[in-house]
Simulated scan of single mutants.
Amino acid sequence: MGNEIFEYGFHLVSELEIAANFIWAGIKEVNKIRDFEVDIPIELSDLMDKTVDYGRAGGTFQEANAHLIVRENQDKIFTALYHFSIGIERVQKTILKLYLFPKDRDEDYEKSDLELLKSHKMEALQQRLKRLFPELHFEKRENNLLELLSHYYNHERYMNLHADTKEDNYYHLFIEFLKRYSKDLTNRKTVLEVIGSSVGRIIAKYYSILENLSHEKGVFVYEINYQKESRYVYLAYQNRNASLQIQFDKIRRAKQELILYLIEQGKAIYPVDSLEIDSLDFDFAELPDMIDYILNENVLNDFTDTVESFDDDIFYEVEDKKEFQRIIAERKEILDNFYK
């Protein structure tokens, strides 16, 4: 039985890691969107006609450009929703699979459970899990996002393959979701936080169920591999609002600090005096790891903890919370303006 439990857990851990890869890819994708405010009702089928004909119809370059931005945003949002929905569904199925342990063969499962494990029914999976775990409770915003993802996954994930597709409901539904909970689409930081915290809270609540169930079943699938992106996704509950965006921003900050350090080492060929801040004092012996982290996003060489330790040194030096927050906020602003 021991080997059976180990093998069962190994496969479920692999499934959770795959799910985390999808979810984290979704966070990366929404962070590529520079402007959420551009929202023009548009049909995909005649997008290019509208863009090409603006000059003849007396339209403006700004209008044509706005349509192109919308199209780019649609692509990114489509990809993000695809990643989020696949990742969350895989987490849902992992919980159900673990609940059914020691059953492990198709013939052992009830027909309804087998269908849930083999089909793509996010909403039905969610309802099944809520019946199994009454403590699983989502706030309105989280439920709205789950409903949106379920609609997208069931009805629109293959829309680009159908020539008769006229509308892109997923895009407008997502923009409406963002308007409802971020209030101001011009505030990109707030919009990204709405997305990151909504997805993060959903995952955090599923992960809590998974952890408790693992102890109950004696199959420990919640143990995180710190060398993989699952670390970012499943440990995000440690951030404020369980936000995946906070984790993304930490990683971005660490990369910015590393780049600044590398630039300062070569000031002779790339002067950065105009930044008015000095680089953090990284260990130059770790240069190969720095480059690996920046280029390949190698989680093993994650420098976010290093940057946070430098921040701790600043805090102990100034011994004033507000002054510390001001210094860090100013530093982040300078770095953000430098690395667009």
Rank of each mutant, 00 (worst) to 15 (best):
E4Y: 09
I5C: 09
F10Q: 08
V30K: 01
V30C: 03
N31V: 01
R34E: 14
D46S: 12
D53P: 07
G59T: 06
F61P: 05
Q62N: 11
H67D: 13
H67C: 14
L68Q: 12
V70M: 09
N73K: 10
S85C: 09
E89D: 13
E89S: 06
Q92F: 15
Y99K: 11
K103R: 11
Y109Q: 02
K121F: 07
E123W: 14
Q126Y: 13
Q127F: 15
K130S: 12
E135S: 10
F138A: 07
F138R: 06
E142Y: 08
L145S: 04
N154C: 08
E156F: 01
Y158A: 02
K166W: 09
N169Q: 14
I175W: 03
S198I: 07
G200Y: 05
I203W: 00
S208M: 10
I209L: 05
N212W: 07
E216L: 09
V221L: 01
E229D: 05
R231A: 06
Q238W: 09
R240M: 10
A242E: 11
F248K: 13
I251Q: 07
R253Q: 06
I259C: 04
L260P: 03
Q265S: 02
D283N: 13
I294T: 06
L295G: 11
L300P: 01
T304I: 12
F315G: 02
Q325L: 15
I328V: 05
I328R: 02
R331D: 03
